[in-house]
């Protein structure tokens, strides 16, 4: 429900006239709900920002939170919600920071108990509701992006691509490989080959308990893609069960080099690089 123009200007008047009283009570109410987990000064600043934003919006003729005049107010609300979400406050605690204004307004307005004041209060209160909902949405959006960031960080943490020798990079894979993770790992591996100019990559799957067809296909495709780019992959640490799965699934590993351990794979690569490139040449043609 939108404010009417005269309600909007009355709201602006009321807020500026009782500035000290409203903000003081507002801070007090919010402080109670947060039980001292935010400093009084910080809270006071936030509430004053909100207060100023509301006056600006109301004076600018904002009839609801969507209108242009309320742009600054929306920014202040979004900032507040982001801060609360990052500091680990709950959604309720965040929304209360806005809803507390209703109580402050009620205490201010209930002295004049006529019908007009009541109508005004209802209108103001619905505007505050809009602010509360906006806060809630910003809060959720911030949390969602935090979760997405963390998921990505987790993915990166769990898939290190390391240079272990001049011209040799390795990816020690640990844990269950699902299709999405396999894809991320493989893209990173190929990019690292380019970035470091390494013609050899070792994919170590000692820490992988099982592979399914899709994951095996991802690994195979990566080996083929690396070849297209001019690099060779060696797969090391294939467990007996995985070897059985690979054979049972009928996955063709073809001429891809496989070694028992990462150390064996590295020794294999060093033997290849330790000799002239003509050695590499003859191997490629064979």
């Amino acid at each position: 429900m939108a404010l009417r123009a005269e309600e909007s200007s009355r709201l602006a008047g009321l807020l500026s006239e009782h500035r000290e009283r409203v903000t003081h009570r507002w801070v007090e109410l919010v402080a109670n709900s947060l039980r001292g987990r935010l400093s009084q000064a910080e809270l006071r600043r936030q509430v004053e920002d909100l207060h100023r934003g509301m006056i600006e919006a109301a004076q600018g003729g904002a009839l609801d939170l969507e209108s242009e005049a309320a742009g600054e107010l929306r920014a202040v609300l979004a900032e507040l919600s982001r801060g609360r979400a990052r500091q680990g406050f709950t959604a309720t605690e965040t929304a209360v920071s806005v809803y507390a204004l209703k109580d402050a307004l009620l205490e201010l307005m209930e002295t004049e108990a006529d019908a007009d004041t009541l109508r005004d209060y209802v209108a103001f209160s619905s505007f505050v509701d809009q602010m509360g909902l906006f806060t809630f949405e910003s809060f959720v959006r911030t949390r969602e992006s935090l979760i997405a960031d963390q998921a990505e960080q987790l993915l990166e943490l769990s898939t290190p691509v390391v240079k272990i020798w001049e011209g040799v990079v390795a990816v020690p894979l640990v844990g269950t490989l699902d299709s999405a993770r396999a894809q991320v790992v493989m893209e990173r591996l190929l990019q690292t080959l380019v970035d470091t100019g390494s013609p050899y990559a070792i994919i170590d799957i000692t820490g992988v308990p099982a592979v399914d067809t899709q994951v095996a296909q991802h690994i195979l495709k990566t080996v083929v893609a690396a070849r297209l780019m001019g690099a060779d992959c060696i797969i090391s640490g294939i467990r007996p069960q995985i070897a059985q799965t690979i054979v049972a699934l009928g996955i063709e590993f073809g001429d891809i080099a496989t070694k028992a351990s990462l150390a064996d794979a590295l020794r294999h690569v060093l033997r290849l690089t330790g000799v002239t490139t003509s050695r590499r040449q003859s191997r490629r043609e064979s």
């Binding site: 493989m186 190929l190 080959l193 495709k221 083929v224 893609a225 297209l228 001019g230």
Partner: peptide, 12 residues
Amino acid sequence: VGMRPAVAITLV
């Protein structure tokens, strides 16, 4: 020389 990873993945 210089094939990009995304290009190689796509070719496969």
